[in-house]
Write a protein that binds this DNA or RNA. Sequence first.
DNA 1: CTGCGAGTCAAAC
DNA 2: GTTTGACTCGCAG
Length: 150
Amino acid sequence: MLEVISVRWVKFVNVVLKNEIVVRVTFNDHPFYENIQSDTAKSLKSDLERYFKGERVDFSSYEVSLSELSDFVRVVLDEVRTIPYGNVATYKELAERLKTSPRAIGQALKRNPVPIIIPCHRVVAKSGLGGFSAGTDIKRELLKLEGLKL
DNA sequence: CTGCGAGTCAAAC
DNA sequence: GTTTGACTCGCAG
């Protein structure tokens, strides 16, 4: 079963679920047509609304689909999910933990299909913000929500 | 401060 | 095989 959540924020945040598993999160100028049926989708929509209001919300219990990704990307994204709300890690720190290079971490994060759910915005460069697949302005706003400046 | 070369490693070509 | 990054470090101007 396919479900869609759309939430208005600085952009529209559109989330697609398949069988109650999050398969994609995108930032768009227009909302997607919503189709919300399961309790999972209802709960996620309310969590997203609370999150965008600035409440501390943990998305780590939602299942995500990483099956199309390489082993390396999965390992990196799993590690990123352990970064708690309001905290950040640098590309270098993750590289050291996973015995790889900062650039390889960046390449993996770029392939994250579900930003916010997997909080890739909490990974920043050692001196500065770093990049973001949906635009660095979005990344900055997400960090601001969690009380961080950069 | 800005710029550039080298090191790095997974992905893309 | 070569090139390209959501990076970092060091060293010049």
